[in-house]
Write a protein that binds this DNA or RNA. Structure first.
Length: 211
DNA sequence: CTCCCGATAT
DNA sequence: ATATCAGGAG
């Protein structure tokens, strides 16, 4: 069955109703903390990132303080998040660049953010949409999977899905819809064992399957 | 495309 | 035992 534009709008409306009260899963108290948390979240659960950042930010939560730690201590602090050597190296280099070129403040455009080591399109989208309230749809593993299953946007790479979602969703809902899709992916439309029977979209979903 | 990588769910 | 987790760089 074909997923029409009208059905896509219905899906978004339902998700918006079901997940209207969700907050970002990552814990942070400043733009810099969010940036670091998102970098750490690559191939790691948000729960693990929050445990790690609680301890890390108590020690250092500014680029200057992270630089003062040194790369070895940073590696030890973030080890549990995985990919820890490359993440530590990238974070140190990003902090240096933020201090040298942005007066210690997190840059505010996708283009500038993506120049930071360890910051790709997905991370940049998250930061601008959450911190600077700029409409954006960050396509992470959840958004990618859920969008393809629902056929809200179909594609074999994140950028294609991002562009498809921007067409299917009105701009004023981009940032909120990004969170709805993530939480739907986390709680219901899971990768390995999706809870199709209890899905609020089961009547509309082209991938609906009984267990 | 491969590599980075520990923790967790299944 | 293995697939997956708020990806990005080379």
């Amino acid at each position: 069955m074909r997923v029409t534009k009208k059905i896509k709008a219905e899906m978004i409306d339902i998700l918006g109703e079901v997940y209207k009260d969700v907050k970002p899963a990552l814990h942070y108290t400043s733009p810099f903390e969010l940036l670091i948390a998102v970098i750490l979240s690559a191939q790691c659960t948000d729960v693990r990132v929050n445990i790690t950042t609680a301890r890390l930010f108590a020690r250092a939560n500014t680029p200057q303080a992270i630089l003062a730690m040194g790369v070895h201590d940073l590696e030890e602090e973030i080890r549990d998040c995985g990919l820890f050597r490359s993440k530590a190296k990238n974070i140190m280099a990003a902090c240096q660049k933020i201090c040298d070129e942005y007066h210690g403040e997190v840059p505010q455009t996708i283009e500038e953010l993506m120049k930071l080591p360890g910051v790709g399109r997905k991370t940049a989208n998250v930061v601008v949409s959450i911190i600077f309230d700029i409409p954006a749809i960050a396509v992470d593993t959840h958004v990618f999977r859920v969008s393809n299953r629902l056929k809200l946007a179909v594609g074999d790479n994140p950028l294609t899905v991002e562009q498809g979602l921007m067409k299917a969703i009105p701009k004023e809902k981009w940032s909120a819809a990004h969170h709805w899709l993530i939480w739907h992916g986390r709680l219901v439309c899971k990768s390995r064992k999706p809870l199709c029977e209890e899905c609020p979209l089961k009547e509309l979903c082209p991938s609906f399957k009984l267990a």
